[in-house]
Amino acid sequence: MSQQRVAVRCPSCSPGAETAHEVLNEGGQATVRCGECSHVHKTTIQEESRVDRRVIVSQEDESTEARIDIPPAEELSTGDEFLVETDEAILTARVTSLELTDGSRADEASAEDVKTLWTRAVGNVAVNLTLHPKDGGHDETRSVKIQVPGDEKFVVGEVQEYGGEEFTVERILVRDDATNYHREGYDHDGDFALAKDCKRVYARDENAQQRAWSGW
């Protein structure tokens, strides 16, 4: 979601006419920054109308419903991230789809035209790992799920440890709703993706031999 902007007078560059300002801190006397000269000052902002919208947050195999109040002119789009309060917790959610008031779906729309925001929790996420042994054999290839913070990095070529697993990342598939990625698959050393953007991580199992020994 975009940063809130308001039209107010700037005492530095435009005392006689309103200019666009970015809201830094709301309140009785809001702190704003002029978009023309970057002057920061306090001003009174007229209370604007807001609309109540339904939010569906999916996390693993479960979905939670919540509500948010947003300005009707707020531009929403898939990939936007925001905090939403549910009955269980405050979650960081990413918009995956917008359901409009006419029942259709869209990637971008104004809040006044949106009925439901379909989202995915990205604060803490489950990442799907496909692990294969160092010797390249496929008989012991296994799939596991690990829980990690959404902003954790997976880097191709690096040995990483999570949830009792130690592995070398070889390839990363990113999600369709991930932004700032120019392709789906990453398999060159140094390529990386955030956990919240990973559809699946393919890696070499660094613990396979140790497990084999423990079973003898």
Rank of each mutant, 00 (worst) to 15 (best):
L98V: 00
L98E: 03
L98G: 03
E99L: 04
E99Y: 00
L100Q: 05
T101L: 10
T101E: 15
T101M: 14
D102P: 08
D102H: 03
D102V: 03
D102I: 02
D102T: 03
G103H: 03
G103S: 09
G103T: 06
G103D: 13
G103L: 02
S104Y: 00
S104M: 11
S104L: 06
R105H: 14
R105Y: 15
R105L: 11
R105S: 13
A106M: 04
A106Q: 07
A106G: 08
A106H: 04
A106K: 05
D107A: 07
D107M: 00
D107E: 08
D107Y: 02
E108M: 10
E108D: 09
E108S: 08
E108C: 01
A109V: 12
A109E: 11
A109D: 07
S110I: 02
S110H: 02
S110K: 06
S110T: 09
A111D: 07
A111M: 14
A111H: 06
E112H: 00
E112A: 11
D113I: 03
D113V: 00
V114Y: 08
V114G: 03
V114Q: 04
V114D: 11
K115E: 12
K115P: 01
K115R: 15
K115Q: 05
K115T: 04
T116V: 15
T116L: 03
T116P: 09
L117N: 01
L117Q: 06
L117T: 00
W118Q: 12
T119E: 06
T119P: 00
T119A: 14
R120E: 10
A121M: 11
A121N: 01
A121R: 06
A121E: 15
A121D: 01
V122R: 04
V122H: 08
V122P: 01
V122C: 10
V122I: 15
G123T: 04
G123D: 13
N124W: 13
N124I: 08
N124S: 14
V125I: 14
V125P: 02
V125Q: 09
A126S: 11
A126K: 05
A126H: 15
A126I: 13
A126Y: 12
V127E: 12
V127D: 05
V127T: 14
N128S: 13
N128V: 12
N128R: 10
N128W: 02
L129Y: 08
L129H: 05
T130M: 03
T130F: 06
T130Y: 03
T130K: 07
L131H: 07
L131V: 11
L131T: 12
L131F: 13
H132W: 00
H132F: 06
H132D: 06
H132G: 08
H132C: 00
H132M: 06
P133K: 01
P133M: 01
P133S: 01
K134G: 01
K134R: 12
K134A: 11
K134H: 01
D135W: 09
D135Y: 06
D135C: 04
D135N: 15
D135E: 08
D135S: 15
G136V: 02
G136N: 05
G136L: 07
G136F: 02
G137F: 09
G137L: 04
G137Q: 11
H138T: 15
H138L: 10
